[in-house]
Design a protein around this nucleic acid. Sequence first.
DNA 1: ACCTGAACACCGTTCAAGT
DNA 2: ACCTGAACACCGTTCAAGT
Lengths: 202, 202
Amino acid sequence: MQLHKRDVVDAAMTLLDSYGIADLTMRRLARELKVSPGALYWHFANKQQLLGTVADRILEPALADEPPPGWQQCVTAVCSRLRDALLAYTDGAELVSASFAAGQSRAASDILARLTAAATHAGVQGARAERVAGTVIYYVLGFTADEQSRLQWDAAGAELPEEQSVLTEDPSARFRFGVRLLVDGIRARSSPQSDVSQKIFE
Amino acid sequence: MQLHKRDVVDAAMTLLDSYGIADLTMRRLARELKVSPGALYWHFANKQQLLGTVADRILEPALADEPPPGWQQCVTAVCSRLRDALLAYTDGAELVSASFAAGQSRAASDILARLTAAATHAGVQGARAERVAGTVIYYVLGFTADEQSRLQWDAAGAELPEEQSVLTEDPSARFRFGVRLLVDGIRARSSPQSDVSQKIFE
DNA sequence: ACCTGAACACCGTTCAAGT
DNA sequence: ACCTGAACACCGTTCAAGT
């Protein structure tokens, strides 16, 4: 029977979670679907576009329900749901990072929009709210990609060197710590009159 | 005459800056050096290791002189020198991000160490200082990779859509804004008695 | 409209064999 | 010690031709 976009993305998700991003190739995907490689190019313009669609699916659960009211709770919730969604698939963070950077994921843009709204609600003026949202996203993607690569390196055997132990212990706590750092920063940004750095840097 | 590690890295830097990371392949590099592809594997274990060495060279200017005293000035200086170093080569941010994530760049670790020292100096306790340093690095790499990709997309023709204009205007100011956000966060973290979020989140 | 088959122009890595 | 040549097992993408 006919090949649909949905089937392609389903197969891509399975491939990704089973073997990782390096094995998510157009040829491998075609083989799994028992079609010729060229068939995929009827449904997707190129690999980047396909990966963008995969990214959207990974991020779906992170967008499932409305974020809570109150900008701090909103930022915290959006970040932790984003991280959870990324961790749910092998190499999820790496794939979404790439698609976000390439501007190929609608879902990623939606998440950015929620963070921007939260920053505005926190009292950050106009265009600055977008910058705040960007800063937060960079952190979550960077942190989670790092966490996930260590996790997988770890799972694939081998004791960790002493030195790295502090970096792998309680990632959730380390993550929340960074989020709070950003929230504290936003609070300081949003009320310039109480902000010492204004004098120093501007 | 003999092929030395130095020559390989020199050629790699030229290739990177002229054609970007996608064209920095082992085979292309070998062709440029007029050797067989296999020759490179006498000097480097694999491509990842070679890219790590390239990352170290990109970061060299960022480590050239000691950071200023005073933790805020130190964080600000390390961040802006890091960004400058990354922007000096085509796809520099992307390459260094990958090598940093893979733990293949000594220079990247050195920069992390400087930020950790600054955080400690700011009064952040023990292991938390490393987390702060990580948060800052994720931001700088994420921001700069994004900035650079927009720059290059831009340079390669095509007017930008209205919507994206706010994201491309004055990147240096946007960058400093994010750094200040982090600095403000660090200040709040370092003096918990004056930190409202302690009550809310802990 | 949707897909096959085959081609094009590449990859990273290995390794016997040469000097 | 250092490098060649050739092979192995792949890539993404295109496109005439088929149904």
